[in-house]
Simulated assay, not measured.
Amino acid sequence: MYRIDSRILGMVGTNCYLLCNEDIKECVLIDPADRADEIRKMIDESGCELKGILLTHGHFDHIMAADDVREKYDVNVYASCDEKNTLEQPHINLGESYGMNLSVKADVWHNDGDVLKLAGFDIEALHTPGHTEGGTCYYIKDIGVLFSGDTLFCGSVGRTDFPGGSMSAIVRSIKDKIMVLPDDTKVYPGHGEGTSVGYERVNNPFLV
């Protein structure tokens, strides 16, 4: 059995998710957006032991609490090998625009297609550039769940006017990596409400 807890955090309403494996009482955190205190509360109240932090991409609004949570629970931060510049450079991760000298270093840099074995889940890292150079969606086939970050939203796609962005790349990423998944795959995006692959296949105007 699995459970997904979430919080909407930070100045732009970023979704922070906690994927819990109820059978073994372990969990994984996706995009520690802000408010480390609120995230710690979510983790502690879950009754599960945190096993890792997954970053879908390096923009400031998805990573502000990463270092605090990593230090508190002594776990690794995972990110795409193509996202190093975005994560580490404040002028690229947009933190500088908000007066923040924000830089995060991952402990594990994954490649496209790598399977991360965390909290009893096989989590496939699907590299989906377009919003950023190293944007990543995390797919758990066994439970039919995809954490899409800012690549795919309900009825929309991520912005491509930031450093490293490309509309052609993001549409290609979604079509090649996400639209090949089963229609009933639940999609948990970085902002806004959830959706499914099947719904986006029919209704997303960017994919027609």
Rank of each mutant, 00 (worst) to 15 (best):
A65Y: 04
C81M: 09
L55Y: 11
V69W: 03
S103E: 11
G95V: 02
L102N: 09
D74R: 14
G52Y: 02
D67P: 02
M64L: 11
L54N: 02
T86F: 06
L87V: 02
E96G: 09
A66Y: 07
F60V: 13
A65K: 10
V77T: 10
R40Q: 08
A65R: 12
S80M: 12
V75Y: 05
L87H: 06
T56K: 11
D82L: 14
G95E: 05
L54E: 03
E71A: 15
K72H: 15
D67G: 13
H59M: 13
N111F: 14
H110T: 14
D67A: 15
V104I: 13
D114H: 03
D82M: 12
G52C: 06
N93S: 09
L102T: 01
H91V: 07
E83G: 14
P90A: 00
A66D: 05
K51L: 06
V104C: 11
T86Q: 09
S46H: 00
M42N: 02
D82R: 15
V108S: 07
V69Q: 03
C81P: 00
G99V: 12
H91D: 09
V75K: 04
H57A: 07
K72W: 14
C48A: 15
S103D: 10
M42H: 01
C81R: 12
A79H: 02
H59F: 12
I43M: 05
K72F: 14
N101W: 09
S46Q: 01
V75P: 03
N111I: 08
L102V: 04
S97L: 14
E88D: 06
E88K: 08
K51C: 06
